[in-house]
Design a protein around this nucleic acid. Structure first.
Lengths: 233, 233
DNA sequence: CGACCATTTGATATGGATCAAGCGATGTGG
DNA sequence: CCACATCGCTTGATCCATATCAAATGGTCG
């Protein structure tokens, strides 16, 4: 049903590029100790478009932070459908699990650079540094909130789902009213629990009622945010 | 659309029944320090059927643990529909928020006794006791997992949703193959993102294919678990 | 240019919603 | 104790949003 290029990229073994940030190492109780520490502890890995970053049921030994490009997490259902759990953009952290194994797979939606951190190192650090622990907790809480929003989204109409999606992307992309989508229509459909045809039709319908403009399939301009917000429900 | 008896029960002010457990108080690093501590710190409150325990946007100053009866959390959507976030049975903890305000409301689905604990006391304790902190974290992680399951459920067919629901209830109720439902059909519908009619029809259809028996509307016997599991997807 | 893939558009089917009525419990007043 | 209203649930008829199947279009790369 869905073609997956599964260029399996193995778990990182070598340390590649040097970390960027160069602030004080000592974590203590700074504002966001995690961001810095993570860069000092991690390794930057490159993943080509559509390659797997980790697979469901693999050992969850690492935590990931998107440096560039984008990532999708997903599950394949027994009937062959794919449910996308989330899209992760530069700055976002993913792969945070609370079991020994990943509960979903992750792939690059575009060529991506990802900072990879050993989970054991991080949890050890969290044990010593309450700030890091708090941040990990906050991260989890945010993820929980995000998923709860998804539940609310999935009981809405197709139009509402697509409108919500566009607003979410605009918010996260923060490039004014223009959105540069990294993901395909199929990705969007699998994220929203719709078919690709319905997503496409909904976009054209939104365009014809002047709420958006679709100059190219990956580029969408929000023309009437309040209308989108209104139909968002 | 949905009749809600909103007998508003105010936030606990008085300490009522004494805690049951009588093990050592000192939390230190026991197996499950939370369960005990919570009983020592909390107050047991009674909520009549359909009364509100807390409302959306209220200050999230307390954490709750069901002692008897049952609880539903929910959100009212702008179109008037209600989405039930979860059902909580004796032993379950709810009201765990990571913001200052509750993001959903909670009501008793049947006359309920609920242990109420001041959140500030608990977080203070978590600061001192790593075991408690870990348990709070685990609780959040479990909630996250639960919600992720819901997302997967909501993209399935009505039959699959109802089958999953029955299996979940059987698991949590652990009374063999018989389920004593505390909640109404409307509650189930709002939990599964279906209408009451569809839930009802699906149950009769499951009954007619011998997967279940419905001796009375609140009592359901699982006759063929593997069939349910199979259609669960 | 031609092959291929992603996307759009069109025609039809269908699962679940909606509207409407019937049915069985439970409770109330006479 | 019975007539009757009420409430929660089931059943029936119809409608509609979205899925499904199918084809056309457009963009990209060799």
């Amino acid at each position: 049903m869905i073609a997956h290029t599964t260029i399996r990229t193995s778990v990182p073994l070598t340390r590649s590029a040097a970390p960027v940030a160069s602030r004080a190492l000592h974590p203590a109780s700074e504002h966001e100790p995690l961001a810095e520490t993570i860069h000092l502890m991690g390794t930057i890995m490159s993943y080509p478009r559509n390659s797997e970053i980790f697979g469901e049921n693999e050992a969850a030994d690492y935590l990931y932070k998107v440096v560039s490009g984008g990532v999708r997490t997903y599950k394949i259902l027994s009937d062959g459908r794919r449910q996308i759990g989330g899209f992760y953009m530069p700055g976002d952290i993913f792969g945070l699990e609370f079991a020994d194994e990943h509960t979903c797979s992750a792939e690059a939606i575009a060529d991506a650079k990802v900072l990879v951190i050993k989970r054991s190192a991080l949890t050890a650090l969290a044990g010593r540094d309450a700030g890091v622990a708090r941040e990990l907790f906050a991260l989890t809480a945010r993820e929980l909130r995000r998923v709860q929003e998804r539940v609310l989204l999935l009981i809405k109409s197709a139009q509402q789902r697509v409108a919500s999606f566009l607003l979410e992307m605009a918010e996260r992309g923060l490039a004014g009213n223009a959105i540069e989508l990294q993901m395909s229509r199929q990705d969007i459909a699998d994220y929203l629990g719709l078919t690709i045809e319905t997503v496409s039709r909904t976009l054209t319908s939104l365009e014809s009622c002047a709420a958006i403009e679709v100059p190219s399939s990956r580029r969408i301009v929000l023309r009437n945010r309040s209308a989108l917000n209104r139909m968002n429900g």
